[in-house]
């Protein structure tokens, strides 16, 4: 059980690192625009800033 567990999470960690190496990343792409106001913000829920939450 312990071996299976560590094989699984080690595999998971290396896949993350491998994907990072292949995909690449722009600096801070998912953080809010620095110095911006609320309209430039987004949340992980996917709906954007609070003004965009009133879509329905």
């Amino acid at each position: 059980m312990k071996k299976t567990y560590f094989i699984l999470i080690t595999l998971f960690f290396f896949v993350l690192i491998w994907e990072h190496d292949n995909q690449g990343v722009a600096y801070n792409p998912l953080f809010h625009v620095e110095g911006g106001d609320n309209n430039s913000m987004s949340m992980p829920c996917g709906l954007g800033g609070s003004h965009k939450h009133n879509h329905k």
């Binding site: 993350l16 995909q23 690449g24 722009a26 801070n28 998912l30």
Partner: peptide
């Protein structure tokens, strides 16, 4: 869903660019 602002950006970049992923690790 994956065309919305935050998810589409997340999908285009490395998973390690997503702060939620980073905090989960």
């Amino acid at each position: 869903y994956w065309q919305l602002e935050y998810p589409s950006t997340a999908l285009e970049n490395s998973v390690l660019a997503d702060p939620t992923t980073v905090s989960n690790i």
